[in-house]
Design a protein around this nucleic acid. Sequence first.
DNA 1: CCTTGAACCTATAGTTGCTAGAGACATTAG
DNA 2: CTAATGTCTCTAGCAACTATAGGTTCAAGG
Lengths: 144, 144
Amino acid sequence: MLTIGKLGQAAGVKVPTVRYYEQIGLLPEPERSTGNQRLYPRAALDRLAFIRHARELGFPLEAIRDLLSLSDKPDQPCTAADAIAKAQLQAVRARLSRLKALEMELERMVTQCAHGAISDCRVIEVLGDHGQCAHPHHDSAGEP
Amino acid sequence: MLTIGKLGQAAGVKVPTVRYYEQIGLLPEPERSTGNQRLYPRAALDRLAFIRHARELGFPLEAIRDLLSLSDKPDQPCTAADAIAKAQLQAVRARLSRLKALEMELERMVTQCAHGAISDCRVIEVLGDHGQCAHPHHDSAGEP
DNA sequence: CCTTGAACCTATAGTTGCTAGAGACATTAG
DNA sequence: CTAATGTCTCTAGCAACTATAGGTTCAAGG
């Protein structure tokens, strides 16, 4: 049996985060010691590592919830898991192309900066004047 | 003078967001009509467009606050503005390289999926077993 | 046995950048 | 004049944690 600290360390997840995952129902409530401290079996480590790895890949917790419930039914076809992963890949690619555009514009801003007075600063100028920039501005916020 | 709706529309920012920017001090409190509605001068549009554009480039609001206060002092050197933009460029590049790694791993997961049962699913398997994946896992969360 | 210090407990609030809702007042078009 | 928008304030909610406060339990050393 592992205490929450050992579990967190083994999985690379901070202790408050483990408790948070329990609170939102991603991890089942473990047994408690006589002194009311959480005690986890080995299996909890697998589950937590799964969550952590999926989070590292950028899956939102809701998707992870679905993936976990899928992994509990090994006999079903994996179409759903595949779909979730594909959606995540799409989302990542969308962010990538957006970030590349941002990178180009920031690069332009920074390299064109003459390091003079604010009044001549390309950085401020480009930010203030939409017309000066190349990128499309299709959507609203900086990053989804 | 513009009402908040016109202003928002002209700058491409939603009305509650404009009020939010006012609340956190990014936009000054405007005059009010006799009926207590906000009335903005043209200059407010420039400022709001500046904010919006900077947000689109992913600048955090705190950085925008700094950039705005810089743009109010046109005689100072633009070193600070330059530094903020460079930091943002760095942040964007860091996210780019991270996202590229994620893309590769997700791609691998998805293309290797044999579309059979969950028990044979590469997606689930790779998520569950750290050792199967190529990417480094240096930092903790999916995206900063 | 006692004490110390680390690890644990609960509960609450804060973070970022908005967005949504409720319920009331203002403005404007027909 | 009325109906339809638009606007007002205030509160609460989203993701996914992180931090803080104030208390309890555990493991080791003396």
